[in-house]
Amino acid sequence: MASILTNGSAMTALQNLTATIRKLDETQTRISTGLRVGRAEDNAAYWSIATTMRSDNGALSTVKDALGLGSATIDVAYTGISSAIDAVKEIKNKLVAARQPGVDRVKIQSEVTELQRQLTSIGNTSVFSGENWISVDSSEPGYSNTKTIVASFSRSNEGISIGTITVSVEDIKLYDAADQSGILDELDTTINGGEDYSVATLDITQLSNSESDIADLEQMIAWVDLAITKMTTSAASLGAVKQRVSLQQDFVSSLMAAITRGVGALVDADMNEESTKLQALQVQQQLGIQSLSIANQNSQNILALFKG
């Protein structure tokens, strides 16, 4: 039935055109953002998962930065101990030379003193971001004999957990201003009748060629050699921790990439598919406009019936 009040064809054409425009807008949004699921209404489940995983990836990025900071701190401490080993080896060489009767032990001590000053400098300057692991003061408020490096971030049904890597300062410190319990300032109390000494304070200027003084000198050599052994163990321990940190850095980087790929698989738009849809919808839009235009001409056809 032809009617001037209700144009069914035009209404149908308008509905189809409106639906086409809506789909066209969605496709254009996906192309412009690159996302198939950019809002919760697009797909609530996928959007929720993607939002959570992006947040976790941000936390992992912070973990990666923390690992980099920890690695640098370990590297500084390792470099300090390695340099200290070289200096203590020189002290040992000087003491062995002083064992020879007839040498000027005062001059040898002057060289040893400079090496001791170098050791102090190494301990004081092995600092990164305010952290010094080899020259400490255990009497300071808040001091901890263990250092932790944030190593991981994970989410499970039980909640969020943060993993750490622990380094024992007690095992690697060279100096401790509080109680002289470091490798270099630890006192040797076995000296025969003399004052206790450490690698950092030993003095051979008063030693003679007497049997007891020679025994004391040999004890000094043994004490210095023991310090070298302890520092070598400390350096090896730090090297092992640094390797673990490096491996964890690689793992965190790989994990972040895997999460990014997983999120992309859920929410990223297929640009080839979307571009094809865009072209098809543009054609449908043009045809819909033409269809609506033809349907609107029906009223004009009715008017023609009343013309004489």
Rank of each mutant, 00 (worst) to 15 (best):
A2F: 02
A2H: 01
A2E: 02
S3C: 07
L5N: 02
T6Q: 15
G8A: 11
M11L: 08
I21E: 14
K23H: 10
D25W: 03
R30H: 08
L35R: 06
R36Q: 14
E41G: 09
N43L: 07
Y46I: 02
A50Q: 08
T51A: 11
M53R: 14
L60D: 07
S61D: 10
T62G: 02
T62M: 04
V63I: 08
D65G: 12
L67A: 01
L69F: 13
A72N: 13
T73H: 05
T73C: 04
D75N: 10
A77P: 11
S82W: 03
S83N: 09
S83H: 02
S83I: 02
I85R: 15
E90P: 03
I91F: 04
K92M: 06
K94W: 04
L95A: 10
L95G: 06
A98G: 06
Q100H: 01
R105H: 05
R105A: 05
I108S: 07
Q109H: 09
T113F: 04
Q116G: 03
R117H: 14
L119D: 02
L119Q: 01
L119V: 02
I122H: 01
T125V: 09
V127G: 05
S135F: 05
S135W: 08
S135E: 08
D137R: 10
E140G: 07
G142Q: 10
G142H: 07
G142L: 07
Y143A: 07
S144K: 14
N145E: 12
T146D: 15
T148P: 03
I149V: 14
V150D: 10
V150T: 15
N157W: 00
E158C: 01
E158H: 01
I160G: 04
G163M: 03
V167I: 12
V167R: 00
D171P: 02
I172Y: 08
L174M: 15
Q180L: 11
Q180N: 15
Q180M: 09
S181Y: 06
G182R: 06
L184M: 09
L184V: 12
T189S: 09
T190H: 00
I191H: 00
G193F: 03
G193E: 03
Y197H: 02
S198L: 12
S198E: 09
A200I: 12
L202D: 09
L202T: 11
D203I: 11
D203P: 14
Q206W: 01
L207C: 06
N209Q: 13
S210I: 12
S210M: 10
Q219P: 04
I221Y: 00
A222P: 08
W223P: 05
V224N: 06
D225V: 09
A227C: 12
I228G: 06
M231Q: 10
A235D: 11
L238N: 01
G239S: 15
G239C: 09
Q243H: 01
A257V: 13
A257R: 15
I259M: 00
T260P: 09
T260N: 14
A265N: 15
V267N: 14
D268Y: 05
A269C: 04
D270K: 13
E274D: 05
T276N: 08
T276H: 02
Q279G: 05
Q285C: 07
Q285A: 12
Q285D: 12
L287W: 07
Q290C: 01
S293L: 00
A295M: 13
N296A: 12
N298T: 12
I302Y: 09
L305E: 10
